[in-house]
């Protein structure tokens, strides 16, 4: 698997898309920091970008890579290699190279700005960690979509739909549910609802850092326990890990059954 990972990663590191992605984050970091000169504001803007863009790029890139490397995959399949290691290797190659672009692209300007001397370093690290998680989650989801759809156009369509659903529509439905059932105690429901969507989950993690003052204004005991203690942080991280593990296991399962 490590060999495949090595080659996929190597392959991606030379594709111009990685550079575009890297350059985009580099530019974003520079613009946010040096034109604005306000670290806290930069972190908030970055959060919005990470929550929305990282999943989108993860899905699109994952689907694209899968379809584009189909021949390579077939070449590998005839080699004495396990299927699971081929797909895991490719998946990790994509996810790691995307994460690297993200971390380096944003990290470099922030380091130059003097991040290590600033108190925002924890907020910033949390942002990068959630960004990395989102990359891993959405690349895995993208591989799942691509594995289940031979037709590229369909695959891309589903990928975009998935992103649209998780990034926007889900929250709309979520909000409506909460408003319709506002007479009932909803704190558990709302926390569960958050866990079921990786974007919401990452958002909550960041909220824990940025908006803890507001979150503690709510009266529910479950909320209080969740946000007031490290419990919330731990549960969210466990859920994020699950969100990586489940699609990846479906991916390996699915890949074992698939014909090429």
């Amino acid at each position: 698997m490590l060999k495949i990972l090595k080659y996929s990663f190597y392959d991606l590191m030379r594709s111009r898309w990685s550079y575009v992605y890297f350059a985009f984050y580099l530019l974003l970091g520079i613009v946010l920091l040096f034109l604005n000169n306000d670290l806290s504001k930069a972190v908030i803007t970055l959060m919005n970008v990470i929550i929305v863009l990282v999943p989108l790029i993860g899905t699109i890139f994952g689907v694209m890579y899968y379809y584009n490397s189909k021949e390579f995959t077939e070449l590998l399949l005839a080699q004495p290699l396990k299927r699971s290691s081929i797909f895991l290797g490719q998946y990790l190659g994509v996810a790691i190279s995307l994460s690297m672009s993200l971390i380096l692209g944003l990290g470099i300007p922030f380091v130059f700005y003097g991040l290590f001397k600033s108190t925002a370093i924890w907020d910033f690290s949390l942002l990068l960690i959630t960004g990395t998680f989102l990359t891993f989650i959405f690349t895995a989801l993208a591989f799942n979509i691509a594995l289940s759809n031979e037709n590229r156009i369909k695959g891309f369509g589903y990928a975009i739909l998935l992103w649209l659903f998780l990034a926007i529509i889900y929250d709309g439905l979520f909000l409506m549910t909460l408003i319709i059932f506002e007479d009932y105690p909803l704190d558990k429901v709302s926390l569960v609802g958050t866990m079921l969507n990786p974007i919401d989950l990452s958002r909550t993690l960041i909220l824990l850092k940025l908006d803890i003052s507001a979150l503690l204004g709510y009266t529910g005991a479950v909320f209080k326990q969740f946000f007031g203690t490290n419990f919330g942080l731990m549960v969210s991280f466990v859920a994020l890990v699950l969100w990586v593990v489940l699609p990846v296991s479906r991916m390996t399962f699915k890949s074992k059954k698939k014909d090429f």
Partner: peptide
């Protein structure tokens, strides 16, 4: 109106 919705703070929606 519905305090639980605070959980959606900073959502794109």
């Amino acid at each position: 109106r519905t305090p639980e919705t605070i959980i959606l703070l900073r959502s794109l929606f």
